[in-house]
């Protein structure tokens, strides 16, 4: 019934077993190893898939990024970077599979993306777009659990509810791994760079991040904030503990946090509107 950890890992590391990933992604992945492939070439490949392009552009124009009107794929590649566009292609395809069943998780993810972007901006960090993208993708492992082991997912939610424990703890008991680790495997199999895969893999355990602990800390804090706000629904009923290492890494203090919360709540009004629009389309 329940798949073992190594079975799960095998399934996830093999992108072919993920349902209907657009062919474009495979082309992109083979290109990214080739140093010579230009942004124009990548943009041309992505643009050949109209549905995918539309999804990418929609996300590129979401409140997770601060741009007005990103109207073409090459525009998005220039503004957001090739890796971000690739991540958007992947995440929109993955999320599209479960579409209407996962509105709560979509809202949570977009909220964390927006919050991560605001935090990164406020702290004057470089690569805000990457940080926002890591926020958007941080719980992608949960989507994979839903798609790949829907039975186990029900058990996880039931256990978390019965024992009033965190989803992460329930996941470890039932599938011997958790959505953060799965997200890490997944980003490896997608050839995402460390600056995206580390925040995804370690957003619940910032100390484990080796090379990108600042980005990981931002995503962790953004996740806690969105949970605290009660925005969207990640399946989690309780706000996780804020990790001291993340707080210290970002030099947070009460005043800064209060300002951030005001700004985030402001932005969440837009995220909500964005999600409603998406559902109604």
């Amino acid at each position: 019934m329940t798949k073992s950890r190594s079975d799960l890992k095998k399934i996830i590391m093999d992108t072919r077993t993920l349902p209907t990933l657009p062919n474009v992604i495979n082309k992109l992945n083979s290109l990214s190893d080739n140093e010579k492939s230009s942004v124009q070439e990548m943009a041309r490949i992505v643009s050949s898939d109209q549905v995918l392009s539309a999804r990418i552009l929609r996300l590129a124009n979401s409140p997770s990024y601060g741009f007005y009107r990103v109207s073409t794929i090459s525009n998005a590649m220039i503004l957001l970077g090739v890796n971000v566009v690739k991540s958007l292609a992947l995440s929109s395809s993955i999320f599209a599979i479960m579409e209407k069943d996962s509105i709560g998780l979509w809202e949570h993810s977009l909220g964390v993306g927006a919050a991560a972007n605001l935090i990164a901006n406020k702290l004057g960090l470089p690569e805000c777009e990457e940080i926002a993208t890591a926020g958007l993708l941080h719980d992608i492992g949960k989507v994979i659990i839903t798609i790949k082991c829907s039975e186990a997912e029900k058990d996880i939610l039931k256990l978390a509810h019965e024992r009033q424990i965190y989803i992460l703890e329930a996941e470890r008991e039932i599938i011997d791994t958790d959505h953060a680790e799965i997200g890490g495997w997944l980003s490896k199999s997608w050839f995402l760079p460390d600056k995206l895969s580390e925040p995804i893999a370690f957003h619940h355990d910032v100390a484990k991040s080796k090379n990108h602990h600042i980005k990981t800390a931002v995503v962790h804090i953004a996740d806690v904030l969105i949970c605290a706000s009660g925005f969207g629904n990640s399946g989690e009923s309780f706000v996780p503990p804020i990790q001291k290492i993340a707080w210290d890494t970002l030099n947070l203090n009460e005043q800064l946090l209060a300002e951030l919360i005001n700004e985030i709540e402001d932005r969440l009004v837009e995220v909500k509107a964005f999600c409603l629009e998406m559902i109604n389309d």
Binding site: A228, F238, I242, W247, E254, L257
Partner: peptide, 16 residues
């Protein structure tokens, strides 16, 4: 309710 598991954590209390 959301904070009921973490109010004893000083940083979570600040956020709450």
């Amino acid at each position: 309710y959301r904070f009921s598991k973490t109010l004893q954590e000083p940083l979570n209390l600040i956020m709450y």
